[in-house]
């Protein structure tokens, strides 16, 4: 599903945010990325989502070679991915429901089906009662969960989540990861970045540890390729 070969990313003339990273995530797998702040976790996820281009190296995602993705193919590629942002990136000019519905609108879902799916996603993150609220009025953890609902509402084949539990208490964090695990169980591949080493290790999934832009495998069954 994801394959990076000797990928390096450098922003301007700064030090390399990622150096020679190679990794593989098989279809249907679920893996975590850990590492200290500034290690390059967000950068790695953004590269895989095609939001940044690597300075060197090759990235393949879901059968696409990102370097050779034509502009016409980009929307289709992005629709197959769900993204949870570290800073949520919700739209404050519309209620929670509309935020979550956005990917479905892009996919031209019809109203009744859209409503059903948005409600289901909000229910899964425990925020069904907040569907009419403006996201501005929500707590940081609630906003984060709206972002998660938006990322999974269209049932993507690949979920890329950047600190999805950063603002959640331990119980909720575990619940969200279990939700991802459920989706993973029905075929969604997931790659999740997190600080919370203890929580991540308790999931019993492969872990890719990033340190200073380099992969250090300390995986249970993870595979630096």
């Amino acid at each position: 599903m994801i394959r990076l070969q000797r990928v390096t990313k450098r922003f301007g003339s700064a030090a390399e945010a990622l150096s020679n990273v190679s990794l593989r995530v098989d279809p249907g797998a679920m893996a975590f990325i850990t590492g200290p702040s500034g290690a390059g976790k967000s950068t790695l996820l953004r590269l895989i989502a095609g939001l940044e281009r690597p300075t060197r190296g090759r990235i393949q995602v879901n059968g696409h070679d990102l370097d050779r993705l034509s502009p016409r193919a980009i929307p289709g590629f992005r629709r197959s991915i769900g993204l949870v942002f570290q800073d949520h990136r919700l739209l404050f000019d519309r209620p929670v429901f509309d935020n979550v519905a956005l990917p479905l609108e892009i996919l031209a879902y019809r109203r009744p089906e859209m409503r059903k799916r948005v409600r289901a996603a909000l229910d899964k993150v425990g925020l069904l009662h907040k569907e009419a609220a403006n996201p501005r009025t929500l707590s940081a953890g609630e906003q984060q969960r709206v972002g998660i609902a938006r990322a999974i509402v269209h049932r993507p084949v690949l979920l890329l989540a950047d600190e999805p539990t950063g603002n959640l208490d331990p119980a909720l964090s575990r619940e969200i990861l279990r939700l991802f695990d459920d989706f993973n169980g029905v075929g969604m591949t997931a790659l999740i970045a997190s600080h919370d080493v203890g929580l991540v290790e308790s999931m019993g999934k492969p872990i890719l540890h990033l340190e200073d832009g380099r992969i250090e495998a300390r995986a249970t069954t993870g595979q630096p390729a």
Binding site: P75, G76, R78, S80, L83, L91, D93, P103, I106, L107
Partner: peptide, 11 residues
């Protein structure tokens, strides 16, 4: 911001 998010979602 709406456009950016929509783009990322495949608009």
């Amino acid at each position: 911001e709406e456009i950016a998010i929509s783009r990322i979602s495949g608009a």
